[in-house]
Computed example of a mutant assay.
Amino acid sequence: MSSLFAFPGQGAQQVGMLHQLPTECSACLLEASDALGEDVLALDSAEALKSTRAVQLCLLVAGVAGARLLMARSPAPDYVAGLSIGAYAAAVVAGSLDFADAVRLVALRGELMQRAYPQGYGMTAILGLDQATVERLLAEAEGPVYLANINADNQLVIAGSDAAMATVAERARALSAGAAKRLAMSVPSHCTLLETPARELADVFAGVELRRPAIRYLSGTTARPVFDPERLRDDLAFNMCRVIDWHGTLRTAYERGVRLHVELPPGAVLSGLARRVFEQGTVVAFQGARLDTLDALLRQEVSQTR
């Protein structure tokens, strides 16, 4: 049996998320501040988190800091995966991308996304309808709106203009959707609307060194392992404009023998999704768990594979 470190995406952010990290994470926070040229602890206030750039940087730093703390005392995971921006933390922890490079790339990523759509666009979660039904609603909608995330069989996210999303949400409710909720996202991620900023990011990414993952990296878009550095570069640079198949990623992990799913900070959004897949496994979130408990679980997975 194997273990997976899962890194959350935008929407999981919390006010004070970096300040809430254990004191042992201070070196990681300092490293991020040095790479960024500013104090990252200034980025997790309520006001700062209105910025896409700040949100994405906080998620990267929190995920890497939590993973490094665990790996300093416990066996490394067998797999890593990240939802959207979480993929950057996954690549750092896999040993493929230097943390300082990731910090600078994520800062640029957030700026490009925010600049492309400063207002009038975003994302909406639709619960209780299957993918075919939601795709039919999208095809019937007027205005730009697209499928963005497949989080579960009946938990999907759409992205596009506020007006188009509102129309789809209204029709989804009429079909007895459990919920159709506008998310705390100011950009239409994971659809063709972000193809131009993705290409701009890819141009900068071309000058950054990437290595073959030392820990198996699962792509949140293809739901498959990525080994080649150039394929990983493409996966990271363009994941902002590609549909996220998180449900497929979790199923791939489970089919490959993963039975311990550890969600890195912040929050426990991914844990709720994982419990639907890991029926005979263990799902735990870093936030709210004791370090010795997490250590024991990771060591148990190692002992069971011998």
Rank of each mutant, 00 (worst) to 15 (best):
A32V: 05
A35L: 07
A32Q: 08
Q280W: 03
L183E: 11
N239M: 12
G207I: 06
V258M: 09
S26T: 10
L294D: 07
G178K: 15
A107T: 00
L232V: 00
E200V: 02
Y121F: 15
T221Y: 01
L137Y: 06
L175I: 09
V61Y: 11
S2N: 15
D292Q: 11
A87W: 07
F7S: 12
S84E: 11
A139F: 04
V204F: 07
Q287P: 00
A89R: 10
C25V: 00
D295R: 14
A27W: 04
M1I: 04
V258Y: 07
A179M: 12
T221L: 09
F7M: 13
A202V: 04
A76M: 11
G9H: 09
L112H: 06
A166L: 08
G37Q: 12
A206P: 00
G82R: 09
A132W: 00
A81E: 12
A179N: 08
H247N: 15
A62S: 15
D203L: 13
R73C: 04
Q13S: 04
D78E: 11
L183C: 10
R231D: 15
V145Q: 09
D292E: 14
D292S: 14
T249C: 14
G86S: 11
G95D: 13
N151H: 05
A35P: 01
R53A: 08
H19D: 15
L297N: 00
Q13C: 04
L36S: 09
L194D: 06
G128S: 12
R233Y: 00
Y117W: 12
L264K: 09
A94D: 12
A163K: 13
P266G: 02
R231L: 12
L29W: 03
T222V: 02
L49F: 03
R216K: 09
L156M: 09
L250W: 06
V284D: 09
A107W: 00
G207C: 08
E142W: 01
I244H: 03
A184N: 13
P265K: 13
F5W: 11
L273E: 09
A184Y: 04
R109C: 06
L108C: 02
R73H: 14
D234Y: 14
Y121A: 14
G63H: 08
T133N: 03
E38H: 12
C25K: 02
Q14T: 11
A76P: 02
A89K: 10
